[in-house]
Amino acid sequence: MEFIDLKSQQKRIQKQIQERINTVLTNGQYIMGPEVFELEERLAKYTGSKHCISNANGTDALMLALMAIGIKPGDEVITTPFSFFATSEVISFFGAVPVFVDIDRETYNIDASRIEEKITKKTKAIIPVSLYGQCADYDAIEAIAAKHGIVTIEDAAQSFGATYKGKKSCNLTTISCTSFFPSKPLGCYGDGGACFTNDDKIAEKIKVLRTHGQARRYYHTDIGMNARLDTLQAAILLAKMEIFDDEIQLRHKVAARYNKLLEGIAPIQRILPENTSAYAQYTIEVDNRDSFIEKMKTLGVPTAVHYPIPLHLQPVYAGQYQKGSYPKSELAASRVVSLPMHPYLDEASQDEVVKAVKVALQI
């Protein structure tokens, strides 16, 4: 059984992918070819955002966002401790300070009600994470940001295709960043990412920054980076966009069936009524997780843990944060486990997964 089945997806659109790739090979425009700009237009239209600036990966997207707002050493950026390391890594990279706010235990997203108490004169931005595919409470977060004159950057690496109160993820904040890593809801065949914004000046800044700070050929106005999305990956993403809405609906169908089959068996992430999730992962909580994972493996069912160590307890931050400071994140990190989730998970496979869960939990 596949944890994420990319083979079935490729088989479905193999012809379209090959045609797109062949066009790039024929034209020979491998860097910043026409497919890159076609993709950016398509992604902007999909999200409703005015600008999409593609780039090399989701981490670079976050870095470009922070560079665009002028983050510097000593600045503070508020974020969640329950995320992939890139979320805090990019803050630390600039010599800024990650200021963590604990999560809501039911959604696993940052607890918006606890953000304002962490704001100081040094606070320059908030980076909420739309974890597992569900958006955080962006209305509340944006209201706090506006009140204090700071910027909100959505880490939407897992939530492209999700909605919050009828609006698409990647069009909810000043800047949004997503990832096209292969296992994401919309993934390429390598690394890729994008920034989204409705701010013309920020969009232009990010475009310059992603190409060595180059405003025009050999004319550099900023210290930037080489963070371009290559044309082949753009071509692959364009082919995948043709079936993306259908795949999101299939993910919803799989998740709804999981919800029904697992009701009363294991706690699951709560999806708020005003939200739809992209279901990058389908995550439950269990006691004795190591034992559970080993039993599932014996039964032939793959699992994954997103994420086993909260950011504030990572070795690189040793001495900067205390264990017990963010108890909800620490508890979730010790209990969460993700089950196979992808658009092509059939009912028989789901039944096999749930049967294995019951055996592993001795139900």
Rank of each mutant, 00 (worst) to 15 (best):
C170N: 14
K121T: 14
A215Q: 12
K118I: 11
S113V: 05
I243E: 10
E38Y: 08
T23D: 03
A68R: 00
S92E: 01
F181C: 13
E41Q: 15
E40D: 03
T276V: 09
V36P: 06
P310R: 11
Q249S: 14
Q9W: 14
E154P: 06
K124V: 03
S183P: 00
R210W: 02
P302T: 13
D290R: 04
G149F: 06
V208W: 00
A140V: 10
F180A: 02
Q269I: 08
L232V: 15
G95I: 06
Q18F: 04
I206L: 09
Y164A: 02
I126E: 07
N109Q: 02
M67K: 04
Q14I: 08
T80W: 00
A44Y: 13
I21P: 01
A215M: 14
L62C: 08
L339R: 03
M296Q: 12
A318E: 13
Y138C: 12
A140H: 10
F85Y: 09
R210V: 01
V353S: 05
E285K: 14
D246H: 10
G161L: 04
I78L: 11
S113F: 10
T152A: 14
D199K: 13
G190T: 07
T59K: 03
A278G: 09
V129Y: 02
I153W: 01
T178Y: 07
P73C: 11
G28D: 01
G74D: 04
D104Y: 04
T283P: 00
E242G: 04
L39E: 00
S183N: 02
L66M: 01
D351Y: 02
F180I: 05
Y279F: 15
A348M: 09
V316H: 06
I248W: 00
L238Q: 02
V286M: 09
T26C: 11
V208A: 07
C177E: 04
H148V: 06
I141D: 05
K205H: 13
H342S: 14
K165M: 14
S169E: 12
N55M: 13
Y219L: 14
L6R: 13
K11I: 12
Y321G: 00
V101H: 06
I206H: 10
G319N: 13
T87I: 05
A143C: 06
Q350I: 07
K122V: 07
K240R: 15
T197H: 10
L261Y: 06
A234I: 08
D155F: 01
